[in-house]
Amino acid sequence: MTWVLDNLDLIAELTLIHLRQSIIPILLGFVLSVPLGWVAWRYKLVRSSIITITGLLYTIPSLALLILLPSLFGYNLFSDTNLIVALTIYAIALLVRSVADGLDSVDPGVRQASTAVGYGAFRRFFAVELPLAGPVILSGLRVAAVSTISLATVGILVGVTNLGYLFTNGYQREIIAEIFAGVVAVMIIALVVDGLLVLAGRALMPWVRTGSGERAVRVGVQEAAA
């Protein structure tokens, strides 16, 4: 406990670095997964291939990926970029299936209704399909967020500083309190980010709480037609 109190500034600094290194790949993974998931949902012939290939990305050992990526793309092994790219790949591996499954869950009748009142494919996707697929996608995003925050600690093994430093340094110096502080800090970040995602989901998808999502969208489509 004494070590923790004496090193609060270090823990806070590493926590902010870790948070930044985690948030960027979570956002990038989500943005890139939406079009990939849509393609997998829209074109059944390539669905299995896309989901299988992206899913296999998650099976690549994290340390191996962190070492291989710089040699493939030419950036610094020890940079934040290396870790962010690797974490983005893992996030995509988890999210593509969630996006495809979410779009699958949308009632075909709602799509037909929106098309009937003049919604084009682009407008229908963002105004009807994506909102209704939101709960399933959000569930996948929460899993990807927690996974990303946890995996980020591996970056310390290739010289990328974050909360993983507390694990390796604590182990080398046999300071259990330092290791424990790192574990707790990672857990707190994961809980806070997960909580923010839940709150964002409630704010952006208020109909989920009442179970009236499709009805709400139907009403919106009818109002647009009027």
Rank of each mutant, 00 (worst) to 15 (best):
T148E: 09
S49W: 02
V143L: 14
Y119A: 12
F125K: 11
I92W: 07
G182F: 02
A133F: 09
A144E: 05
L95Q: 14
A225K: 12
D104A: 09
E13D: 14
D9R: 09
A93W: 00
L132Q: 13
A113M: 15
S114Y: 05
I156N: 04
M1R: 06
T148L: 08
V198E: 05
Y90C: 11
A190M: 05
T210D: 13
A226T: 14
F180K: 02
M1G: 13
A121T: 14
L28Q: 03
V106N: 10
R20P: 00
I50W: 01
T54M: 01
V193P: 00
A144F: 06
L196T: 01
G120I: 09
V136Y: 02
G182D: 08
G118R: 08
V110C: 06
I156C: 03
N162A: 14
V34Q: 07
V192P: 01
G220P: 10
V198Q: 07
N7R: 03
A200N: 00
L63W: 00
S212Y: 08
V184W: 02
F167L: 15
V39H: 00
L16R: 13
W3Y: 11
L8P: 03
G155Y: 07
A152Y: 04
L14Y: 07
F122D: 12
I50C: 03
E129K: 10
S79W: 10
I67V: 15
